[in-house]
Amino acid sequence: MAEPANASPLVRIDRVSKHFGEGETRVDALREVSLDVYPRQVVALLGPSGSGKTTLLNIVGCILDASSGTMDLDGETVLRDGRWQRGDLRRLRLEKIGFIFQFHNLLPFLDATDNVAVVLKLAGVDMSAARKRAAELLDYLEVGHRRTAMPAKLSGGEAQRVAIARALANRPRIILADEPTAALDSKRARIVMDLLRKLAIEQEAAIIAVTHDEKIFDRFDHIFQLRDGRLDEPSAAADDPAEVPSG
């Protein structure tokens, strides 16, 4: 892919492979995949079922190890030759990675505010400060009026916005989204993607999304196609891709 000038990638994946099983049952989910994602970029991972999208997302999310290869997140080498370089991957996820799920995955027993605040609380922020930040994020995402609503009372779009607020709570620089618009109609899907693009720019974050949703392809800076565990050359998708930082 074209590398923006004067910028370091937030996610650098270098010849990462992953296989499951051995011998006749061996399945190569990823074959020497290399990928750089820069701040302010929103990229999509496409591919048919079994092409390795979710495997790659899990490796970037530090919830699945690789068989080989190296990965740097926010300038820190976290995976080298298929081995984790940090013991506390939970902390790494908490501090540097935000997750957005296909079905929002909000905790049903917490209201919108506390669903966001829980991430801050886990990071050690005291509860009143966590709730304040959560309220700010919900206002920013235009669901502030629903801050006391339980997830079951939120519409699909509102729930996904709360989930985005939760993903952003700790100001992560890397946001991983798994089919973020799959549960939304076209209009809401575009609104959510516009929101993610806005966040990527304003918060200097990199967003990697797995999606099959063709109606939002134009919202990505680059689309990476995975086939049989291999990454094709990226294609620029957005008419007006995000500006890259000047340094």
Binding site: G61, R90, L94, N105, L107, V118, L122
Partner: peptide
């Protein structure tokens, strides 16, 4: 929910 908590960094 437990998986989600683990994923977002709950010890």
């Amino acid at each position: 929910q437990i998986a989600t908590l683990k994923l977002i960094g709950a010890p």
